[in-house]
Design a protein around this nucleic acid. Structure first.
Lengths: 344, 344
DNA sequence: ACCAGCATCTAAAGCGCTTTAAGCTGCGTC
DNA sequence: GACGCAGCTTAAAGCGCTTTAGATGCTGGT
């Protein structure tokens, strides 16, 4: 029954997936030739190529990535850690995919969640033999990242890292928030509050940016920071607190767009006109913020460019022989939309 | 310099990652023993365990997943296809992680995006040797899924599939939308519009659910379906169209929460009171819908339960010897919140 | 003294692929 | 006819791990 004589029964009824050897047997060639053909390496004759391709197709052959990764010394895999709840990360991932593909790398994703720490996510990526790690908005302490960076190229995206062992691609967050504050101040606002994003580095930078810009605009007395995090809920809570305080500012800057959306919705529900009574601004230029119904003034981080730079940084380390630390800081760009207006 | 005599220089300065052999050499044992210890297989003595563990730790050894997958016949990997832009998928993934972990499986994620089709995503998962595929809301035609299902266990989550070759875990969408319509009809609404979700199976089911429920409530004459898709933008566009038509319904049901949020925001901006003038309902019970500032009436799909069932279904096929098709249909649950109210 | 029986440990054969050196043609040359 | 040289193909040695059959060294029983 089995022409090749190599019985590979499985008992449970399913057929084992075809191997290189199976397609080789089918065309009477060695696995070496088949491998060559399938990877498009020059060498095999036209006739051989044809036959192999046809046979592989007929068998539904699909190379086993793991085996091939193991055999090549390289995996050509970039590990990406994302927060699956973040719309901004979603966008980055999208662009990372195309950027990686262009340079012949593949992506393996791992997500941290409420129940799954960064550490676990990174372990997973490493276990898959990622050659480099692209960490989106990591919150781990610099020391931990440094340790990681010494064994594997690490590219931190979106945040500053005080270490020469990890590359960084980010936008100048302080400056970005500064632009917003300047924009609002320029519209005549003086009482500008800020909804914080938490304790991590990114949040710290933005908060500092806010403080600095307020001082710079002579509004030191109006500095007002409300506790928050990166979720819509944070914006909502902050709005409630502002409303309850009886001292509504004329403008509120949020840590990110998600938080700003929360603000927007809560203010709207309370009957506060935006931007009539209060101006609101976010950060990230998420897809949502662009929607006409939110039309949120925000700051663009240019996801595509950051993704491209991140992949480039990884490839430079892996294939370009770069060993020197590299930090790429992109200029954030204010996107003035409909939620900010001159103070009345 | 190299005590063990096995020179593994790399030239580029980086040290190759330690292998089983390295830790074996360090404690003067065979790789077999080390492998046993590291996987917690009974056999090795207490003393040996200790020494191996210490050595592995000292070397920073990290097993190479690929190699071990290759050596075991099994990969213990479940491939998950997600839409990285969907908040509902994000929730599912979270629960899938914990469910998989409990039964000793790992997840590999692959995302389809605007620029990356389902086909590609699945290819990736298969290339990683996933033993089963969990597809979240696949839009591929049943025939394609069937073909896939014949070679690999496939679990489609969230949608009906007319095929006995793929397992299905979903909620009764028709019923879910029906519950919403009934709820609204019970509140006295007659003019209830629906914002569609597209052409795929899930969207079709929900649309049919709407139509059926309208008829069932004697509101056939009020059936009104607006074109849309699964994004916030769809809701926004639909709102604009409704406002422009001069014939505002008293209630609008959206395909999903994202669309509903778009509706909500656009109506709010236009000064239409929700639920005062118009009631709005969504579907999915996303994190966002639970927020006080949106407080959206919706239908819960119970992500956690679906995730658990999906993993169970996969494991039953893989380890339980099940070969018969299985469809698990969960009952959707209406979550009446603040965006729906009695018609005035 | 000998062997059964146990607790430990290891040699060696893969897993499905890549890669390199060597092999085999057949051809034109001198 | 020996030689060199393309052009194509393949044998075989891994990649880092798991796994199985079997080796080894004990114990205690007879």
């Amino acid at each position: 029954m089995d022409e090749s004589g190599s019985a590979r029964a499985r008992g449970n009824g399913t057929t084992p997936r075809p191997r290189l050897e199976d397609v080789a047997a089918r065309v009477g060639l060695s696995t070496a030739s088949v491998s060559l053909v399938l990877r498009g390496v020059p060498g095999p004759s036209e006739r051989t190529r044809d036959r192999v391709l046809k046979a592989a197709d007929a068998l539904g052959y699909r190379p086993d990535r793991n085996a091939s990764l193991l055999a090549r010394r390289r995996s050509r895999l970039l590990g990406v850690m994302v927060d699956i709840h973040s719309p901004f990360h979603a966008e980055l991932v999208e662009h990372l995919h195309t950027a990686a593909q262009q340079v012949g790398y593949d992506l393996v994703l791992s997500t941290q969640t409420r129940t799954r720490g960064e550490q676990t996510a990174v372990e997973t990526l490493l276990a898959f033999r990622s050659e480099a790690l692209i960490l989106l908005g990591p919150t781990a302490p610099a020391a931990a990242l440094t340790a990681l960076g010494r064994t594997t190229p690490v590219i931190a995206v979106g945040r500053r890292v005080a270490s020469v062992d990890v590359d960084v691609v980010r936008t100048a967050d302080e400056d970005g928030v500064g632009q917003i504050v300047d924009h609002l101040a320029g519209l005549g606002h003086r009482s500008i509050a800020y909804v914080d994003g938490g304790k991590d580095v990114i949040a710290t930078d933005r908060r500092c940016g806010y403080r600095a810009a307020m001082r710079h605009n002579g509004l030191e007395a109006h500095i007002r920071v409300l506790r928050g995090d990166s979720t819509e809920k944070a914006g909502e809570t902050a709005a409630r607190r502002l409303l309850g305080s009886g001292d509504l500012p004329t403008a509120v800057v949020a840590y990110n767009d998600q938080s700003a959306i929360g603000l927007l919705a809560a203010l709207g529900r309370a009957g506060i006109a935006v931007p009539g009574a209060v101006s609101v601004a976010g950060y990230d230029d998420d897809t949502l913020s662009r929607l006409g119904c939110f039309d949120l003034t925000t700051v663009s981080q240019n996801a595509e460019e950051q993704a491209r730079h991140a992949v480039t940084a990884a490839v430079e380390r892996l294939d370009g022989g770069r060993t020197a630390f590299r930090e790429i800081v992109l200029a954030p760009r204010l996107i003035a939309r409909g939620t900010t207006a001159a103070v009345s």
